[in-house]
Amino acid sequence: MATPKFSNVKHSFHSELKKRINQYFQQTGKKSTGGVALSLKAILLVSAFIFMYIHLVFFTPPVFWAIVECVIFAGSIAAIGFNIMHDGAHGSFSKYKWVNELAAFSLEVLGGSSFMWNMKHNVIHHAYTNIDGIDDDIDIQPWMRMSSTQPKYGFHKYQHRYFWVLYAMLYVLWVFVLDFQKYFKQRVGSMPLKKMSFYDHLVFWGFKLLYVFLFIGLPIYEVGFISWLVGFLITTLVAGFVISIVFQLAHTVEHTHFPMPDAETGKLDDEWAIHQLKTTANFAPRNRVISWFVGGLNFQIEHHLFPKISHIHYPAISKIIKQTCAEYDVPYIEYPKMIHAVASHVSFLKQMGRAA
């Protein structure tokens, strides 16, 4: 598929949004980056990650507590991805470029590749959200059907029941399969990767080997194969499911759209900002615990419209965006509670599994 083109509007909705958000930061005197609050959260999450790793590998507790710690360890992995890596990759963690790069680099320690993530997430997903054939996030074929434009197979009518198994496998597949597919194909879906430098290749392979040593080799040596396998599966499956469900609730629910460009012109009906609002949803916006843990990704609308703004500002700017949407008669999709969004996602999967 050729790269889609968004509609050009002289006095666009997006320009009005940017003007109002800029006024907010000017009037409040706040910086758009994370600041001290996010730095303290990062120290807490990284400390929890290091403590859990050391305690599980070198001071392994009894079975019950080891399982509990593996779940907490999984939570710290997901939270580092949501809060530190994600903001850093978008350049919103800090006003200092090197701090953002360091925050984004946390993905390497967790087994992923920030190079592949930047292309998949920052470049493609944020520009062409929910466009089948471009957005790699909705390409789980043939196992799941995430858009009416994708082929339907008989087993898809059960995807609303088995989805959690595939979601739980995301983290393991990400580390050991998906990154390597992108690396060797030099593509993310239909989009070519930018050329990798020698340094990029070195980082990719070096940190993949480091992950194998830290999360497979050393733990097996310290606790034995069976204990490692049980702990590794609990940790990666829990982390995988948490990461998957948070991202899926943002775009694959009943009320989000999956627009396709005109077959001849390659143009989309909407300007970019309105496209983002039609393809994105918020959930549990007033739940501070969820907001803290998922790094504001429950305010996915705000994130997609202003990815360079740190998530700590999303609750405040959401009021401005919601008001602007109401004035311009633009949809603003929001689920009051996370359980509502989960129910809508399950219903969406059921529809996609049965619809023509």
Rank of each mutant, 00 (worst) to 15 (best):
residue 2 A to T: 11
residue 5 K to N: 10
residue 6 F to R: 06
residue 7 S to P: 03
residue 11 H to V: 13
residue 15 S to R: 13
residue 17 L to E: 02
residue 20 R to E: 14
residue 20 R to F: 07
residue 21 I to D: 04
residue 21 I to L: 06
residue 24 Y to V: 00
residue 24 Y to A: 08
residue 27 Q to R: 12
residue 31 K to V: 14
residue 33 T to W: 02
residue 37 A to I: 12
residue 37 A to M: 13
residue 42 A to N: 01
residue 49 F to Q: 07
residue 49 F to P: 08
residue 51 F to T: 13
residue 56 L to V: 08
residue 59 F to L: 10
residue 59 F to N: 07
residue 62 P to I: 09
residue 63 V to L: 15
residue 64 F to Q: 06
residue 65 W to V: 04
residue 68 V to T: 09
residue 69 E to Q: 13
residue 70 C to H: 07
residue 76 S to G: 08
residue 78 A to M: 03
residue 80 I to S: 01
residue 85 M to F: 12
residue 87 D to R: 05
residue 93 F to G: 08
residue 100 N to T: 08
residue 100 N to G: 08
residue 102 L to H: 06
residue 106 S to L: 12
residue 109 V to K: 07
residue 118 N to E: 10
residue 124 I to P: 00
residue 128 Y to H: 12
residue 140 I to L: 15
residue 140 I to T: 13
residue 149 T to Y: 14
residue 150 Q to E: 08
residue 150 Q to V: 08
residue 154 G to L: 14
residue 155 F to L: 13
residue 155 F to T: 11
residue 162 Y to F: 14
residue 164 W to A: 15
residue 164 W to R: 07
residue 164 W to E: 01
residue 166 L to D: 04
residue 166 L to F: 12
residue 169 M to S: 11
residue 170 L to K: 04
residue 177 V to H: 11
residue 178 L to I: 12
residue 182 K to S: 15
residue 182 K to M: 15
residue 184 F to C: 11
residue 186 Q to C: 05
residue 198 F to V: 12
residue 200 D to T: 05
residue 211 Y to Q: 03
residue 224 G to W: 07
residue 224 G to A: 04
residue 224 G to L: 08
residue 225 F to R: 09
residue 232 F to Q: 07
residue 234 I to P: 05
residue 237 L to V: 02
residue 239 A to H: 01
residue 241 F to A: 02
residue 244 S to F: 09
residue 244 S to A: 15
residue 247 F to K: 04
residue 253 V to K: 00
residue 258 F to G: 07
residue 258 F to R: 13
residue 259 P to Q: 06
residue 259 P to D: 03
residue 259 P to W: 04
residue 268 L to T: 03
residue 273 A to P: 04
residue 273 A to H: 04
residue 278 K to Q: 10
residue 281 A to K: 05
residue 284 A to D: 02
residue 285 P to W: 03
residue 287 N to H: 01
residue 290 I to F: 03
residue 294 V to F: 00
residue 302 E to V: 08
residue 303 H to I: 01
residue 305 L to T: 08
residue 306 F to Q: 02
residue 306 F to W: 05
residue 307 P to L: 11
residue 310 S to D: 06
residue 311 H to Y: 04
residue 313 H to K: 00
residue 314 Y to N: 05
residue 318 S to K: 01
residue 326 A to S: 14
residue 334 E to S: 15
residue 339 I to Y: 12
residue 343 A to C: 12
residue 345 H to R: 03
residue 348 F to V: 08
residue 349 L to Q: 01
residue 351 Q to Y: 11
residue 355 A to N: 13
residue 356 A to Y: 11
